[in-house]
Design a protein around this nucleic acid. Sequence first.
DNA 1: CCGGATCCCTTGCGATACTG
DNA 2: CAGTATCGCAAGGGATCCGG
Lengths: 118, 118
Amino acid sequence: MECKPEFQDDRKKEMRAVHDAMDVLNGKWKIYIISSICHYNKRRFSDILEDVVGISNKMLSKELKELEINKLIKRTVLETQPITVQYELTEHGKTLKTIISNLTDWGMKHRKEIIGKD
Amino acid sequence: MECKPEFQDDRKKEMRAVHDAMDVLNGKWKIYIISSICHYNKRRFSDILEDVVGISNKMLSKELKELEINKLIKRTVLETQPITVQYELTEHGKTLKTIISNLTDWGMKHRKEIIGKD
DNA sequence: CCGGATCCCTTGCGATACTG
DNA sequence: CAGTATCGCAAGGGATCCGG
């Protein structure tokens, strides 16, 4: 966990790795969407729309598509009437749980640090 | 690490925590700046400017100020000629190392998953 | 060297309405 | 219900110049 100086080459790989991660998680909504799906394991479009306060259906649709392209979520059309669509994390998507969890913990710590109470 | 359904109240606190963390780490550059400072422990303005490829001095200045307000970094003016300014993580800022580290690991994993090689 | 001020442009995102 | 299409705005951010 220490950040001591290392060889330049490793450093570049690290930077690239952070960059790769950021590319996927960018935008205003991705983390919240993943967090929502992750919390319930499976979640329908309209449910996510409610979970993620403030998002529009256009944005949700766009973000979900990007997440799917990056193989983080799996999209399943259920043959109900009317049709519903279910989203769930892929195995690869599940590896994000650690990050979400860290982020949550850190957010709580930060709130105490800055605001002074939880 | 599992994401099983929990009581609504905990869920709301979780969401708020993620939100708090995102507020601080938002924008295009924060993570990279922190990553740069973290890697070297102490880092001068112009050095960070080089580390973070593509950032303008205006942006760097703005982002550093925000990070300082959130008590993640400490700013020190060195009385050299001309003046240089040094930035380092505060104790609180150092708690972000876990997240950066996880993000790095995940980025590498993701690259293998999507591109297929590192 | 640090970083503020100005100008300007791009694009992310919201609102709304519409289709299968 | 899930998703698409169109319009339009405002914030974010780049380029450049300036001052301490």
